[in-house]
Structure formats: structure tokens, C-alpha cells
Design a protein around this nucleic acid. Structure first.
Length: 432
RNA sequence: UCCUCGGUAGCUCAAUUGGUAGAGCGCUCGGCUGUUAACCGAAUGGUUGGAGGUUCGAGUCCUCCCCGAGGAGCCA
């Protein structure tokens, strides 16, 4: 007799096996008892009927409450009446622990606030398990993609003395009496690392003290960032679309069952990521939005409704290219053919999931970088080390940052990114 | 920071014009041999978010505060 995980069950039909997990739900009908047992890999139905099992086993099982931890032994049978088509005829149950109180998360409706207060328990139920398993696949796919292309995995510091962008959205911490900040992006550090290693990436947490309260924002979220020496603007965008197509392909290939549980249309997903992705000049995107009835003009950033319109129009991720200089940070390289624009592109997700990627070619000369710092009234002193990268063997280089939670939300088809991370950090939510 | 909606039993929600706070689910007990968020019956369960005010009388009206949800701005 062997111990198996529930996702392996179909391979062991006819055999006696042991499953270790928790009681997800229980239904009884007089002399027959159905125990839904979950173990993190899936849910399987266990069956007990009184004439076929000992009265004491039946009575003990009948008393169990949801989320009792159990070790269950029985014989696997195919049965079309069982969810999943396979069930366990139970011979023995070892109760590891019985809950001291009724499990707070019912299988009926709850409000988001209640669920988030009980996130540590909510994550055991329903859609949360498949979402978190898909998250795992997406993280692994990102690492596979970069590894296969010769990128070196690296790290950026979480505690920083400099800010990449403004200081208003930084979390400040006390660092032995000095001010330090939680990083908003590893980019500047990755640029340094790329000059040492060529092509680098990391997946790390970043922090934004924005008082945003939307379905697309967290104060702590994970970003996959890449930085490539000798990559120009076009190389950068090509890499990004290939990455996105790779991730979605991996998720559909490895997590079809979970995506089906989430009722995600995987055909549609795969169609969306067929290459290449459309590229639209910022000015043309503004025109397109104006024609669709939006009140935007050149120089405006896109809001959520604009991103929805762009998604509906292209039905694919779409690059918005060459933003006006004023809209973007100091480290982006200007377009040589039009000095008022930068060689930067945002990749907007379809279906209203917002901006997935922000990327650009970086400024690579000392003169231009110093000028742009000055233009934005930024002190050069904290950036001296960054300026050094342009003093010693500077090369054209590019990079981007991919928001993991938004990517996962889009792949899963879930409306709110708080469900795509085990413990979301939001405005007014630091617990559990 | 701003806008909108909300806060009533452990959970999800009702409560007519200001007039006796109620249901479903969960827990508990009972019934049922194929359930699929099982079903049927019974019982349990309340400082109506907080403070103040108006009134003979406030869950309901007014003021302030707290909390939650959705959105805007900002961003990935």
C-alpha cells in the first residue's frame, strides 16, 4: 500500500492507497457518507457506507467537521457519480487533529473584507488553491525562459538609500539612524549587474506607498525585471513579447486542469499571445482613444478605461510606444529621431488587466544622463554610482519590469490581484 | 486625497411612512443508502460599527468619527 497525492489518484485505480489531507466537505445520506478530502493537489471523494464499514468507523467519520486533518486509507474506484470520476472506498481514517471551532470559511458567499481578514484560511478553499498553483507555474516559467536564453539570475537590494522615482511613494525605514527606503524597483542595480554579466534578471518584491485602492494595485508586489547589455529598444520589445507568450504557453500546458476549474478560456488566452503583439505609437493610441470617445489629449497618461478600450480594440497585449519625455523617468533614452519622445514602451494587457510591462532603452551617455537629472531637479550625488556606469565602458542597453500579480490575474481570469498572491499588502491591510 | 455604495445573529442578507429586529447558511440534535455549496425537521443565536442629537418612540432621520467595498488620481 502506498501513500499518494490526490492528483495521482487516476493512476492507481483498483489499488489500496493512503491520502493525507484535510476534510474539505462532508455530505451524508443516512447510511452512506461522502467525505471530500483535499490535500493541496486536488480534492477526492471518499465513501463510507454502513453495511460495508464498521459501525464505529462510520459513526466517527459522521462526527468530523470541516478541515479536520485526516489520513485516509481505501481502495480507489472509477465512478462517474464522483466529482473527478474517481473515488476512494474508505477502509480506515486516522484523525490527526479535530478543529476546536467551526471553520470560518463557508462554501457559500462571503464579502471580500471577511475573506481577506481570514486569508490564511481562505487560501485553502475553492479557487484559491488553483490560483496559487498557477502562480507557481508562472514564476517558474519566467525563470525557465531567462535561463534558456543565457540570462544570469541576480538580485537587487530591498533596502536602498536612493529612490528610482519620486520619494512620495516610498516606504521609509530607520536604518541605524539614517533614512532608508524599501525598493520600488531593482532596475538601477540590475543595470550595474548587466554591465558585469551581460544579461540579467531577478524576480523580487518591490514596494510602493501609493494610496491606491483598486483591483490592480498592491503596496508590496513581485516584479520580474530584466536588463540586457547591447540590447536596443526593438530587441527589448521582442524579448518581452516572447516572454509573455512563453509564460502563457507554460501555464496552459502545465495547469490546464486548474485553469478549467477557474473557467478560464484557454483557447482565447493562446490566441491572445500569438506573436507578434501589435505596436502602436503613443500619438496614434491617443488618436484611437479620441475616436472611441475618450477625452484624452497628447501628454496624458492612460487610465483604466483607456486600457480597457485598447484591450477591446486589439484583443491582444499591445505595446504603446515612444511616450513623451515628460511622462517618463530620467533614465530613459530619448528617441534620436524625435527628441521630445523616449524609447520606452508599455505593454497593455487585454481584457482590462492593465499595464503588464514597462520597458525602455536606457540613457547610455554621461552627458545625457546628467542633463536629465538636472532637468528633473534631482540631486546627482546619490546617483554617482549610477553615473559611473556611464563613465566606465557604457554600452547601449535596455530592460523592463513585468508585474507578476497582474500577469497571473490575467492568465487566471480573476478580477482582483489580491487573490493572486498568498498574502496581499494593501492600503489599510497589513494583517494577516 | 477625492467620489459612490455599504456596516443588523459566527457568515450572507431582509426589516414598508420613524412603531414588537427576521430569514437562509454554519454549529448542535433528529431523519434519510449516491450525495455534488446535498436535502428534510428542530433547536441555538442580537449592546443593529462607535459617540452625540432630534423624537412619546430610532436599525431607519441629523452631526462627527471608525471600518469595509468599488472607482478616480498615481502606477506594474
Amino acid at each position: 500500500m502506498r501513500t499518494i497525492t490526490i492528483d495521482e489518484a487516476p493512476r492507481f485505480v483498483g489499488e489500496e492507497v493512503t491520502v493525507r489531507g484535510w476534510l474539505y466537505n462532508k455530505r451524508s445520506s443516512g447510511k452512506i457518507l461522502f467525505l471530500q478530502v483535499r490535500d493541496g493537489t486536488g480534492v477526492i471523494q471518499g465513501v463510507l457506507s454502513e453495511p460495508d464499514s464498521s459501525p464505529s468507523l462510520f459513526a466517527d467519520a459522521d462526527r468530523l467537521n470541516r478541515e479536520s486533518s485526516l489520513i485516509v486509507t481505501g481502495v480507489l474506484h472509477e465512478d462517474h457519480r464522483a466529482p473527478g470520476g474517481c473515488e476512494l472506498q474508505i477502509k480506515d481514517i486516522t484523525v490527526v487533529q479535530e478543529p476546536t471551532d467551526p471553520f470560518p470559511i463557508e462554501l457559500k458567499e462571503h464579502t471580500p473584507g471577511f475573506l481577506m481578514d481570514h486569508r490564511h484560511l481562505w487560501m485553502r478553499t475553492g479557487r484559491q488553491v488553483p490560483i496559487l498553483r498557477i502562480r507557481d507555474t508562472v514564476f517558474r516559467a519566467v525563470r525557465d525562459f531567462f535561463h534558456r536564453r543565457g540570462f544570469v539570475a541576480t538580485e537587487a537590494p530591498i533596502l536602498t538609500g536612493t529612490s528610482v522615482e519620486g520619494t512620495t511613494t516610498l516606504f521609509e525605514v530607520d536604518y541605524f539612524g539614517e533614512k532608508a527606503y524599501l525598493t520600488q524597483s531593482g532596475q538601477l542595480y540590475l543595470e550595474a549587474t548587466a554591465m558585469a554579466l551581460g544579461k540579467v534578471y531577478w524576480i523580487g518584491p518591490v514596494f510602493r506607498a501609493e494610496k491606491s485602492k483598486t483591483r490592480k494595485h498592491l503596496t508590496e508586489f513581485w516584479m520580474a525585471e530584466a536588463e540586457m547589455a547591447y540590447y536596443d529598444y526593438a530587441d527589448n520589445n521582442r524579448l518581452q513579447e516572447e516572454l509573455i507568450a512563453y509564460i502563457v504557453g507554460a501555464a496552459v500546458a502545465e495547469r490546464k486542469q486548474e485553469l478549467d476549474l477557474l473557467k478560464r478560456d484557454t483557447e482565447k488566452l493562446l490566441e491572445e499571445v500569438s506573436l507578434p503583439f501589435p505596436r502602436v505609437d503613443y500619438a496614434d493610441a491617443i488618436k484611437l482613444l479620441q475616436e472611441a470617445g475618450h477625452e484624452v489629449s497628447f501628454g496624458d497618461d492612460f487610465g483604466a478605461p483607456h486600457e480597457v478600450t485598447l484591450g477591446e480594440h486589439f484583443r491582444k497585449p499591445v505595446f504603446i510606444e515612444r511616450f513623451p519625455v515628460s511622462m517618463k523617468p530620467f533614465y530613459m533614452k530619448r528617441d534620436p529621431s524625435e527628441q521630445s519622445r523616449v524609447l520606452a514602451a508599455d505593454l497593455i494587457a487585454p481584457e482590462g488587466y492593465g499595464e503588464l510591462i514597462g520597458g525602455s532603452q536606457r540613457v547610455d551617455t554621461l552627458e545625457e544622463l546628467s542633463a536629465q537629472l538636472k532637468e528633473r531637479h534631482l540631486p546627482s550625488e546619490p546617483y554617482e554610482w549610477y553615473l559611473d556606469l556611464r563613465r566606465y565602458g557604457s554600452v547601449p542597453h535596455s530592460g523592463f519590469g513585468l508585474g507578476m500579480a497582474r500577469t497571473i490575474a490575467w492568465i487566471c481570469g480573476v478580477p482582483h490581484i489580491r487573490e493572486t498572491i498568498p498574502f496581499a499588502r494593501q492600503l489599510n491591510r497589513l494583517y494577516p
